[in-house]
Amino acid sequence: MKIQLWSIGKENDPYIREGIAVFQKRLQHYVDFELRLIPTLKQAASLSIPELKKQEARMLLELLQPQDYLVALDEHGKMMTTLEFAGFLQQRTNAGTRQLILLIGGAFGLDASILQRAQYKLSLSPLTFPHQLVRLIMTEQLYRAYSVLHNEKYHHQ
C-alpha cells in the first residue's frame, strides 16, 4: 500500500520540515510514503469562504483517482487511539487498498463534496492545530502505527 499525506497550504517551516524528514525516513522501512503539498489557490483572498472551499474541492477531486481510499482529516471525524489507527492501517492493507490518501484541508476546512467522497473521516483532537504541525503529527503517527504493527519498541503500551 502507498500512503500519501496531502495538505493544502504553504511550504513547511524548517523545524517542521526536519521533523517530517526524520519520520519519513523511518517510515521507508514499512510503507511507501509521500507528503504532497498542494499550493493555496492564487485568488484565495478574494473568494468567500464557501467559494474557496468549493474551488479547493474541485482541484482535489481532479487529483484523486477513483480507486484512492480517501481519509479526510476533519474535526467531526472519528478519534482513534494509536492502536486503533494501527489496526485501521492493517485493515486497509488486508483489504488490498493500493493508495491511501490522508487529506488535510485548507485554512477553512474541507468542502462537503470532499467529505462525501471520503471513505473515512478522522479527527486528531478536539483542539485546533496549525496545518504544518498536523503534517508532522500525522507523519509521526504513521511511523508509530507501523512500529506497533511490527512489534517494535517505539510505542510503549
Rank of each mutant, 00 (worst) to 15 (best):
K54P: 10
Q132F: 03
S7F: 02
L133T: 10
E62N: 12
K78A: 09
K153I: 11
Q4T: 13
T81V: 13
F33K: 00
A57Y: 00
Q4K: 14
V134P: 01
A57F: 00
K10R: 14
L136N: 10
E152T: 09
F88R: 09
M138I: 15
L102E: 09
P50G: 03
I137C: 04
N12I: 06
P126I: 06
E140S: 07
R98D: 01
Q132A: 05
V148K: 05
F88G: 13
R17E: 06
Q4S: 12
I8S: 00
A45S: 14
K54S: 11
R36N: 08
A72Q: 11
Q67I: 06
R26V: 15
N94C: 09
P50E: 12
L73Y: 01
Y69S: 08
S7T: 12
F108R: 06
S113G: 12
E140T: 01
T97E: 07
I38Q: 12
K121V: 06
I137R: 03
Q90M: 08
T40H: 04
V22Y: 12
A95Q: 14
R58M: 03
E152P: 01
L124K: 02
I8H: 02
L83Q: 13
Q24F: 07
G9P: 02
A21R: 14
Y154E: 06
L102D: 07
